[in-house]
Nucleic acid binder design. Structure first.
Lengths: 203, 203
DNA sequence: CGCCAAAGTCTTACGTTGTAAATTTATGCC
DNA sequence: GGCATAAATTTACAACGTAAGACTTTGGCG
């Protein structure tokens, strides 16, 4: 139906396209997401997506942004469901972080992929990633600001984030041997960091 | 020169090929390593490398293995140069780890790339990666065994390893904002973990 | 000394990829 | 109702990994 494509129609098609990309992606990994497969999944010709996205990178950026949104939602849900104790809520968010990574490994890998072409070209992605990051670190920052932790709040937040991310990425790259899985390493790190940073006695 | 290609000749060509791949790789990233470019760099036809490696993946596996070897060498050098104090030597190896990652980012990225096809098919790579891992964690394990650290030695080694890897990977994926770089996060983590795990008073 | 089987290399070719360009198709407006 | 034009499709191209086949060189045997 040519002539005029309403903004909603454009948006709807974009969503459908991102859905399809997520599906292919989760099903068979990154290699399965080709323009032709994507088009087939949508029942359109291989060039049609180019009316809605600049190129394949833009599509992947949208999928990534969607991943960050899901991620943030999962963390927020866990955080909110954990009750009022900030320490318990933060721990719950941490568990949700790891659970997300291992139940949506393809999504997590894509989100933190190392060869992203000019992330800055996709403001929506930047915004989603930033929202997600703030969600990750907000509990910790709140704790740090409340004086439960020593050190600069934002830095402490990043430290815990990295302490989750490191073991997860080592696991994904197949570098961990059986018996030393990501969850065990994370447990050790969380305990060690808590012992090192937590002010159990607020003096 | 057909008929019979001595083992040394095969080995020599393989080395030349890996060298060329490393060069292309460091120069223009992974996308620059195409069979045709590689062949051009070596002055042979695009199919010649297939006499020396099964396929492109095998070449990349060799480059990865080489990376792990360089990595292990760099850590060992730093460790050995640091003197007898195990804590100082371990700290030096940690610094060398980070320095390696940021001075050979392409190599580090490739080594810990997340979409490696059947790593188990390349025993040389497995061996090199394992050698490298042991180098990384040996100082820490020694310290842990000497009772300087609480907890299981090997686990503690993996914890520190992951605490280096996490910030580095976050930096490579462009997720860290200015002011919260990998080195700062690592410094915080090392300090926090030391405080949490180190037995300053061997009671 | 000469020739030939075979190892090494090169050329050619195929299927797949992302996407540019040209073509077709279908509608809102006069 | 016809036409300008937006959307979609078809066609086409360059680059990729690599399979298949042709060519080229040489060690070993008569």
């Amino acid at each position: 139906m040519p002539r005029a494509l309403s903004d909603e129609a454009v948006g709807a098609f974009r969503e459908r396209l991102i859905d399809a990309a997520e599906r292919l992606f989760a099903r068979n990994g990154l290699d399965a997401v080709t323009m032709r497969q994507l088009a087939a999944e949508l029942g359109v010709s291989p060039m049609t997506p180019y009316r809605y996205f600049a190129d394949k990178d833009a599509i992947l950026a949208a999928v990534r942004a969607r991943g960050f949104d899901r991620h943030a939602a999962a963390l927020n849900a866990a955080f909110d469901a954990a009750g009022p104790d900030p320490l318990a809520a933060t721990a719950a968010a941490g568990r949700a972080y790891v659970d997300f990574a291992f139940s949506h490994p393809e999504a997590y890998k894509l989100m933190f992929d190392i060869s992203q072409p000019n992330e800055a070209d996709y403001p929506d992605l930047l915004a989603a990633a930033d929202r997600s990051r703030r969600t990750m670190t907000r509990g910790l920052e709140a704790m740090a600001e409340a004086g439960l932790f020593a050190g600069e709040p934002k830095l402490v937040g990043h430290m815990f984030w990295a302490a989750l991310h490191g073991p997860i990425m080592l696991a994904f790259s197949g570098k961990l041997e059986p018996g030393y899985g990501a969850r065990r390493i994370i447990a050790g790190l969380m305990e060690g960091l808590q012992r090192g940073l937590l002010r159990t006695e607020p003096a």
